[in-house]
Each structure stands twice: as structure tokens, then as C-alpha cells.
């Protein structure tokens, strides 16, 4: 059920300079209509700057942004018709939930009856029917987040920009809202561009993830591609955890959960390496075991707890095993 026929964004060689500092450096992206795209990176990686340029709040220094083939680089923010959910929500504190949500239609001089109808739909969508007349200050963080979402979607924008929308929520609520957000994305069919520094959020929600670093794109791909085939140490370690094996033909990433562990000599397959357990940390469903190896230094191994009733202990001598395909050769190595 797509509410709009637009929503494909083309970003070409985009650059943003603040003085001599380059915040966004030559970024090109093709974003599909209806896609859920996440910009992931540590703070200072340029993801919010990129989002603000898409929204029109920041001028671009070079390059171009186009919506469905038409450049919008010089279009002011209020003419771009992009929805946006701000960090901290930025709700209008003096207006009711209803007026907040209907604002975009109201400034477009939409007839009152139409606004009310549409706002009711949005209230249904975010399940806030009973809160229409409250002020934002009387709502919980999660509810405010949903108002912000409804407000940004009310005028059926082709693109919705979300700037760390879950940052202020506690962890449990966040997982819940992630599900709702995915659900809403499916229902409205709007292109979502989502900024976060939380890798789990990025992995669980996105169609594609853009890993950003120092203002540039490090790697773009589906969550699975990025996780399974990281191209750099940065991508491998920012999205999940990784061990790095350095051999003569380059650096290889090896995820901790892809290593199997057995007391020396008891493994079912040929050991790749052997080592001594330095520490064991118990996490419930799994345990994290640090192993000192001769060949590759310290390696992290994640073992599902159910798999070994006999617990590993510190100082124990162990063999390490993995499948061939578990090792990914990185295309780019750190200098």
C-alpha cells in the first residue's frame, strides 16, 4: 500500500565543507523508492550532516541531490515535502497531539474536515487515538516518538528522514518501537532514510545499510551482505564483532560465533589452531571465551551455552575449529 509514487533519491558526489573541514566527502548513493535505508556510523562520521543536506537544512558544497530524477539541491526545506523525525522529536509543545499531526496539512491550507480525517488515520496508524487532545508534555517518550512519526507521515511525503529517533528511549522500549517502525514502513511504503549509531537497529530494520566513516561511505549493502562479507576491518568491527587473521595474502575477518572450541584432542574436525583459555564470560544464551593462540594472538570465541554442558575454564588447553567459508578475506586493509 504505497501512498506515493515518488521516493527514489539519487545522491551524486555530494560534499559538505565547514570551513576547511570536510564533513561529507564525495558521497554517491542510489536510494530506491520504498527502501528502508540506514546511515550507520560513529558520531562524527557525517551521517547526520548527510541527512540534513537531504532535508535541505544544510546547503551542499558540491554535488547534487535528485528526487525521481529532478534535482532538489536548490529547493528550500519546506518545498521538499520530506517528512522528518527529529532527534528529541521537536514536537510543538503548545499544540495538542492532533494539531501537531495535522500541522503539515494545516500550513498547506487543507480543508479542516480533510485534516481531521487524515489525522484520525494517522492516530490509528500509531495507536494514539486516546491521546489526541493531550499536549506533548503529557506523553511518555515512546508516545512522543509516535506523534513525531505520525506528524512526519501525515502529508504522505515520498521520503521520511529519521534522525536517531529511538535515541532517547530505553533499551526494552526501543526493540518494541523498532518492530512498530518496520511495520509502519511496510504499510505506508515511503522511502525511509534512517540515521543511527546503533548497529543492532541498523541490522534488524534496514533493507540496506550505509556504513559511514569520516564523512565517506565505507560500505553499502544489505545487513546480511555487510555482516557476512565485510570489506574492511572497520566495517567488520563496527557491524558486529570480528577477529582478524593476518596472513601473507591479506587480512581475514572471522566472526566469534563461527569458531568452535573443544578441549585439546577432542574436536570432531581438524583443529585450525590451538590455544589456552584466558577468560570466560557468561551471557546466558552464550558465553564469550577469550583464547590465547600462538598463531593469531588473542581470539574471541562465542559459544552457545547449550552446546557444552561441561563448562570451559580458565587456563584450559583447547583446539579451535571453523569452516573454510567462515573466513572472509577483506578487500581493503588498514594501512
Amino acid at each position: 500500500m504505497s501512498e506515493t509514487t515518488q521516493g527514489a533519491l539519487q545522491i551524486k558526489n555530494l560534499r559538505k565543507m565547514f570551513g576547511t573541514f570536510c564533513a561529507v566527502d564525495d558521497i554517491s548513493l542510489d536510494i530506491q523508492k520504498g527502501e528502508f535505508l540506514t546511515l550507520l556510523g560513529p558520531s562524527g562520521s557525517g551521517k547526520t550532516t548527510l541527512l540534513m543536506m537531504i532535508a535541505g537544512f544544510l546547503d551542499i558544497s558540491a554535488g547534487d541531490i535528485a528526487l525521481d530524477g529532478t534535482s532538489i539541491s536548490n529547493t528550500p526545506p519546506e518545498k521538499r515535502n520530506f517528512g522528518m523525525v527529529f532527534q528529541g522529536y521537536a514536537l510543538f509543545p503548545h499544540m495538542s497531539v492532533r494539531d501537531n499531526i495535522g500541522y503539515a496539512l494545516s500550513v498547506r491550507k487543507t480543508p479542516k474536515a480533510d485534516i481531521n480525517k487524515r489525522v484520525d488515520e494517522m492516530l490509528d496508524l500509531v495507536q494514539l487515538q486516546d491521546f489526541a487532545d493531550r499536549k506533548p508534555g503529557q506523553l511518555s517518550g515512546g508516545q512522543q516518538q509516535r506523534v513525531a512519526l505520525a506528524r512526519a507521515l501525515c502529508f504522505a511525503p515520498p521520503v521520511l528522514l529519521l534522525d536517531e529517533p529511538l535515541g532517547a528511549l530505553d533499551k526494552k522500549l526501543r526493540v518494541e518501537v523498532q518492530e512498530q517502525l518496520k511495520d509502519i514502513h511496510k504499510r505506508v511504503g515511503t522511502t525511509f532514510i534512517y540515521v543511527t549509531h546503533d548497529q543492532e537497529e541498523a541490522l534488524s530494520m534496514s533493507d540496506r545499510v550505509v556504513i559511514m566513516r569520516d564523512g565517506a561511505v565505507e560500505q553499502v549493502g544489505t545487513p546480511k551482505e555487510l555482516y557476512e562479507r565485510p570489506q574492511s576491518e572497520f566495517a567488520a568491527s563496527f557491524l558486529g564483532k570480528s577477529n582478524f587473521l593476518r596472513t601473507s595474502d591479506g587480512t581475514h575477518a572471522l566472526r566469534p560465533e563461527k569458531i568452535d572450541l573443544a578441549p585439546t584432542g577432542t574436536g570432531k574436525t581438524t583443529p585450525r589452531m590451538s590455544g589456552t583459555i584466558r577468560s570466560v564470560t557468561y551471557f546466558g544464551s552464550m558465553q564469550r571465551i577469550m583464547v590465547d593462540t600462538q598463531a593469531a594472538g588473542e581470539l574471541e570465541v562465542d559459544i552457545d551455552s547449550w552446546r557444552n554442558p561441561e563448562p570451559f575454564v580458565e587456563g584450559q588447553a583447547v583446539d579451535l575449529m571453523w569452516e573454510d567459508h567462515a573466513v572472509v578475506r577483506l578487500e581493503r586493509t588498514e594501512s
Binding site: F57, P77, E78, R80, F86, L91, Y103, V107
Partner: peptide, 20 residues
């Protein structure tokens, strides 16, 4: 950001000033 939100939602500068 509240003012930015208003602009983003399509309000002109004048609308943002008087309504927000």
C-alpha cells in the same frame, strides 16, 4: 529543531514564526 521541524513540514518562514 522545533523551528526546523516546522519548515520541514512545509511551513513558510512567516507561518513558522507566527504559529510556532
Amino acid at each position: 529543531r522545533v523551528m526546523s521541524a516546522s519548515r520541514n513540514l512545509g511551513a513558510t518562514g512567516a507561518q513558522t514564526f507566527f504559529r510556532i
